[in-house]
Amino acid sequence: MAEKIPFTMENLVWRSWSNPMVLEECTAEQIDVLEKSDPVAKTHEYYLTLVRDPAALLARSQLFNAIMYTREGARRADKEFAATAESLLNGCVFCASVHSRLYATFGKDRPTMEAFMKDGLGADLSPRLRAIAEFATALAATPPVAGPAHVAALEAEGMSREEILDIANAVAMFAWANRLMLTLGEPEYAAA
């Protein structure tokens, strides 16, 4: 088992605890699913582990792409902030690292994310980001405790029902994806 890595915005790699597929041994169907999944899927141990069940990986990738790459709904930065909050709650260091960097890119606000990664909900957040983080963590809790007050807080920040649903979809999807990552492998620091 690798060293315990704290939450970080550093680039990490994820290592599978099982034997991921070797690309050269994948079937044509598996290669096709990897190509439809993500540009890094053919070299990422997570995808090479999940492609053992190509139908499930295809469904996962289609869901991910439909939620995260749509032009409608919530802004990408808001979805990445929500996914970071959910990943912090669930303890997925790898996912928090990825989503925090994506938020910093799309939101053009690295200092806020650095504070959030350090202090969680105790960080000094704008009312909009606080509403997103509180909704995301309430929705990701087991059992979920998100309710009308969370929705009202998002609406008070100008979010439409469609944007709120989009945030909920992202949080729910990543809660599931985090559980896959947390039970199938662990992060390591990227080689320098």
Score class of each variant (00 low, 15 high):
162 E>M: 07
29 E>K: 12
116 F>R: 01
56 A>W: 03
31 I>N: 03
33 V>M: 09
129 L>P: 05
112 T>H: 00
76 R>A: 15
115 A>D: 03
48 L>F: 15
91 G>S: 04
84 T>L: 12
167 I>P: 04
164 I>E: 08
21 M>W: 10
111 P>N: 00
131 A>T: 05
5 I>F: 09
55 A>W: 02
104 A>W: 03
176 W>N: 02
146 A>L: 05
85 A>H: 08
71 R>H: 05
99 H>R: 09
123 A>H: 04
169 N>V: 04
152 A>D: 14
169 N>T: 00
38 D>W: 07
140 A>F: 01
16 S>V: 14
8 T>L: 00
153 A>C: 07
87 S>C: 12
97 S>F: 08
84 T>M: 06
134 E>A: 04
65 N>S: 13
124 D>V: 07
13 V>R: 13
80 E>S: 11
79 K>F: 01
150 H>C: 08
35 E>T: 00
165 L>W: 12
137 T>V: 13
154 L>I: 13
162 E>Q: 10
175 A>V: 13
118 K>Y: 00
35 E>L: 11
178 N>F: 09
151 V>R: 15
145 V>Y: 10
139 L>I: 00
123 A>G: 05
46 Y>F: 15
157 E>Q: 15
17 W>Q: 12
184 L>S: 14
63 L>Q: 12
50 L>S: 12
178 N>K: 06
160 S>L: 03
20 P>D: 13
11 N>T: 11
150 H>Q: 06
185 G>E: 10
44 H>P: 07
166 D>Q: 08
169 N>G: 06
154 L>D: 13
122 G>T: 04
55 A>Y: 03
55 A>N: 08
81 F>A: 04
184 L>G: 11
71 R>G: 02
7 F>H: 11
104 A>R: 01
50 L>T: 08
45 E>V: 02
59 A>N: 11
40 V>I: 14
95 C>I: 01
117 M>Q: 05
166 D>N: 04
59 A>G: 14
3 E>K: 14
66 A>E: 15
162 E>A: 11
177 A>N: 15
104 A>V: 04
24 E>C: 02
166 D>I: 03
82 A>W: 05
39 P>C: 11
129 L>Y: 13
189 Y>M: 01
148 P>R: 14
131 A>H: 08
23 L>M: 07
74 A>W: 06
75 R>E: 12
143 P>R: 11
138 A>L: 02
82 A>L: 06
149 A>P: 04
8 T>F: 00
175 A>E: 10
38 D>C: 13
143 P>F: 04
128 R>M: 05
49 T>E: 15
24 E>A: 15
12 L>W: 13
24 E>D: 15
9 M>N: 00
100 S>M: 01
11 N>L: 06
53 D>K: 03
1 M>E: 09
176 W>L: 04
154 L>G: 12
60 R>I: 11
93 V>I: 15
186 E>F: 02
113 M>V: 12
27 T>I: 07
108 K>I: 02
56 A>L: 14
138 A>E: 10
78 D>C: 01
121 L>C: 06
90 N>I: 00
78 D>T: 02
68 M>K: 08
188 E>G: 00
147 G>Y: 04
5 I>D: 05
149 A>Y: 09
7 F>D: 08
11 N>F: 08
27 T>P: 05
71 R>N: 07
27 T>A: 05
163 E>Y: 00
90 N>V: 05
164 I>N: 10
37 S>W: 08
10 E>C: 00
29 E>H: 03
112 T>Q: 03
